[in-house]
Amino acid sequence: MHVTGKLFIISAPSGAGKTSLARALIANSGNCRMSVSHTTRHRRANEVDGVDYFFTSKDEFLAMTEDGVFLEHAQVYGNYYGTSRLAVEEMLAKGDNVMLDIDWQGARLVRQQMPKAVSISILPPSIDELERRLRSRGSDSADVIAARMQKAYDEMAHCRESDFIVLNDDFNQALRDLTLILDGEGDSIRPLTLDIDALLDGV
């Protein structure tokens, strides 16, 4: 009998460590692949087309949207991002587990179309720590950081929609929690001790 892969959705505010955790998870797994999104954002010097993103023009992206190419798509900070439905389905058909790195809105759309997908929210230990991580990058202006923080509040406010919530207060522990979820043992992850309401207090 042919075995198809599982679809995992990881959502988190910028600065929560989602990208680093996802890369480590894939590196430690033999059959998990990250879905490569399409974007209209300009390619940065260290990025590779087809590896980091599929870089495309706005006109091409909008035409693909009209053709129903995307499983989900969104506009973020003036740029468009989208997940190819065909690419995801092909990887799943090969038996690969597929990981989507998308926000809560995209996650909601994907769950509606693929209800067997497993959704995971990654949270920072505190708002202060999240802002510290964003500032430590040294690549964003104060206005950009403020915009990212506001979007972070919005992202975290929807974390309860996910099947699992993982706290990234300790990278190795968070990675172990994610590995358990990937292996179908999500009930064994450590209990969430973070008070989400307190985390979002004043938002």
Rank of each mutant, 00 (worst) to 15 (best):
M1D: 12
K6W: 00
F8S: 03
I9A: 05
P13T: 07
A16I: 04
G17K: 00
K18N: 04
T19F: 07
S29I: 09
M34Y: 12
S35N: 13
V36F: 11
T39Q: 02
A45T: 14
A45Y: 12
D49F: 01
D49E: 01
V51E: 05
D52L: 06
Y53E: 08
F54M: 03
T56P: 00
E60Y: 14
Y77H: 14
G78D: 14
Y80T: 08
Y81G: 12
T83G: 01
A87S: 13
V88Y: 02
E89I: 02
E90P: 00
M91P: 00
L92A: 01
G95D: 12
M99E: 11
M99D: 05
M99K: 04
I102F: 02
Q105D: 11
Q105C: 04
V110I: 08
V110L: 02
P115K: 06
K116H: 12
V118A: 07
S119T: 05
I120W: 06
P124V: 08
P125S: 10
D128R: 12
R132D: 11
R133D: 09
G138M: 08
D140K: 03
I145Y: 09
M149D: 09
M156T: 12
A157R: 12
A157E: 11
C159R: 01
R160H: 13
S162Y: 09
S162N: 14
F164L: 07
V166W: 11
A174M: 01
L175M: 15
R176K: 15
L178M: 08
L180H: 07
I181W: 04
I181H: 07
I181Y: 02
G184L: 02
D187G: 11
S188C: 13
I189D: 03
R190M: 09
P191W: 05
L192D: 08
L192W: 13
L200P: 03
L200Q: 15
V203D: 10
